[in-house]
Amino acid sequence: MMMDNDPMDNELTALLSDYAAPIPDDGFAAKVKAEVAKRARLRRIFIAGSGGLGAIIAAMQLPALYGIISGLPAASKLPADLTPSGESPFYSSMLEDLTWGNLSPVMMGTAIIGVIFIWFAAEATLEKL
């Protein structure tokens, strides 16, 4: 602290302490806490909504993506030097392994990445609110 010895400075400090005396709570803290809770609720709704929307958009793309993957040339039709084991239908078997019902792991991965991206975008947006 400064100026402890000068009586005038002490008086000035005392006056300034009164001038900027702390204000009683009067419900301010409760109001802030209510606002914090409200924003947390909004954040949860926004994130869940964004995640749901992302999942729906990703799911809507599944048939088209599945069609693209199914249309890829089978290994047997590729030139022999591009196939790892001659007659072995390597790529075909790989695609079959990757496919699980109507959902392939590739598409699932794409959907998950989409949801994560939307999640982070929502978080970043909420941080700015």
Binding site: Y19, D25, A29, K33, V36
Partner: peptide
């Protein structure tokens, strides 16, 4: 703790901003 921070500083922060 946020509650403690709020309780401890709301009075001075509000006074500071009022001034």
């Amino acid at each position: 703790n946020f509650d403690a921070l709020l309780r401890a500083h709301q009075g001075v922060i509000r006074a500071f901003l009022r001034r």
